[in-house]
Design a protein around this nucleic acid. Structure first.
Lengths: 204, 204, 204, 204
DNA sequence: CATGAATGAGGCTTCATTCAT
DNA sequence: AATGAATGAAGCCTCATTCAT
């Protein structure tokens, strides 16, 4: 049913898989078609352009991930728990068909296409907002509540995620990120104990 | 003198300028030649490959910048001062012929070429070390000296730099970074006053 | 009634409109379908080929115009009147859905397709005959009756029509033709006065 | 010497030959290259575009032919002689590598490319002027001198030439034109005898 | 050392045409 | 009768790279 939408989805997923596996440079109409098992021409039946397909793939993947992250972190006020959930989400991302790698490749390619650049920029904004909101939930009710510039820190968080992803992408060593999570964990525990913990303690 | 070396340098700089101005996608043998005002064939006289030229350009630019950073930050033990010097260096980078943009483009292209990927990785390592050393100097003699995992934080710093660069690259808005420097400044002042400042105070 | 024939007619007219509006180069199965509001596949239900459709469209349009011209000029023996009627017919052609432009495009495409070439040739013949007949009516009863090679002049007339059409097609300036009609008019008046007029005068 | 210009000329002539032999529809980068015995890529080394090459070919051929016509007809004041020379020129055109057929194909293709259309239009004008000048020389000193709208008749002549060419192109029958020349000859003789002849007679 | 013409592979895209529905 | 998704060939063009000069 709705063969049109089904076909489009097949194309989107082939595009994402190809980006992840072959890199942007290797993502050609032919390679996408090979990945998806269809003729190159189909792409142009459903999309104006290769660019168009890639843009749609970006939106597709970003929407899906954003929904997951919102659900998983939406109500989290505890640093330790936040960190744990991020860890899980990240692991899930990695298990996926490579959505994150695909997005990484698109960042890489951004200078090639103004439209792609604009689209990526449009996606950075909401993610930075989302990160800022998570941070605000974290500091809410603590002594630091009014001192923390959550908007800026949100952007920094997104930047760091991007940067780490870039480096991970270079050597394919995903344990590196695990070790960063481990590094940050004590800080999270400290935060919960002293900054938030104080008030929580008195609650009990 | 050494006309060979001189010619090579001309090529390297043309490659860097082309990367910065046209992006990786627009960096072809012809466009580099046009930028530098020589014939495309020359490239193959001095380098095996376009890849070879790009790799050499990366090394060239990275060495130059690393030397600058080492000289400017080498002896810095004060967070406020460190931040101020970083700010200057960054401004200098921007004024330059676009070394940073060129490197950014090469990161973008890394998935295309294993050799490029390896080379970039080989440059990330020393920069992370360098950042770690700067951090160690910062915490040295404070109560946190043994608690701070400087290696990991160094990597995070490099990642953040990379990520911010990526985002800046997207919208061309360089004031964004200025605002991040401004955001971090109070933290640096606090650090100097309490963490370092305390002990330093008693020293005097 | 006769849904088959009706559908064919829809296709023919879509083909003609597309030729006139998009030019031969822009006349594809898809563009014809878009013009006519049907699916590209329908074409192959009613015709073997795109070529087949175009040929049929040529016949369709040529028949319709030939009938008009025959009716309007069939009994015309007066040069001035002949010219006036031609002028009207031409104006009508221009108001039409672009039959003439469509035919012009097919001439353009003739070197692509032998069948099209043959078909066009087969249409030139009757038009030249028709023009020759008109000329014969004009000279009949005059002193020139036996001297005028009407067959050749008929062909020249068709050629001139074609050529003017080609030039008009180039710059879209249809007033050019109006000015040619105006240029010829005095000659027609002269002819009627002296060649035909003389004898006619004595008749009365 | 001047290998650049030589190569360009080779391309221009290959383009013209291909247009004449294969028709516009068959004139692709590959077919031109095959005709000229070079790789398709060369075209893009010397020209921006296929369109660019075709435009240059049109100019090339038009200039050459215009020069010939100017030299042959420049001083002709006699209708019979004018006709004889035109006949020769036409025969020469046919013996050539098909310049005329090539131009014919470009007219056919004009609706495909605005630039081509503009270029053709720019060539029609001088030819019409040239024809008008020839006609003026013909009527000069006769009783009709002030009555003949040479500009308009010049355009008609060009149009007729074009139209005849179109028809000839359809069936490849070049004797048709011979027969038209023969048809017109008596008129030329008459003209020289009565219109011009009168004054010439009194000269002797 | 350098030039610049030439090559050939491969990328994007369009299109006539087919076919399951 | 009609639809519209899919195919595969072919077109245009770019590019790294080579090579005669």
């Amino acid at each position: 049913m709705a063969p049109r939408a089904q076909a489009r989805k097949r194309l989107l997923e082939a595009a994402i898989r190809t980006l992840a596996v072959e890199g942007y440079g290797g993502t050609t109409a032919r390679s996408i078609a090979r990945t998806g098992g269809f003729a190159p021409g189909v792409i142009y039946y459903h999309f104006d352009d290769l660019e168009d397909l890639l843009l749609a793939a970006l939106r597709h993947t970003s929407e899906i991930r954003m929904a997951c992250y919102k659900e998983a972190l939406g109500s989290c006020t505890d640093a330790t728990e936040l960190l744990a959930r991020l860890r899980e989400l990240y692991a899930e991302d990695m298990r996926d068909q490579g959505h994150i790698d695909a997005v990484q490749e698109l960042f890489a390619a951004s200078s090639t296409s103004p439209r792609l650049r604009a689209e990526l920029l449009a996606h950075v904004e909401p993610w930075a907002d989302f990160a800022a909101a998570a941070i605000r939930r974290l500091v809410q009710g603590t002594a630091f509540e009014d001192m923390v510039p959550s908007r800026e820190i949100g952007l920094m968080a997104v930047a760091m995620f991007l940067g780490i992803q870039t480096i991970t992408h270079l050597d394919g060593d995903r344990t590196r990120i695990e070790s960063l999570f481990a590094t940050v964990e004590p800080a999270a525990i400290l935060w919960d104990a002293f900054a938030r913990g104080g008030s929580t303690l008195s609650d009990k």
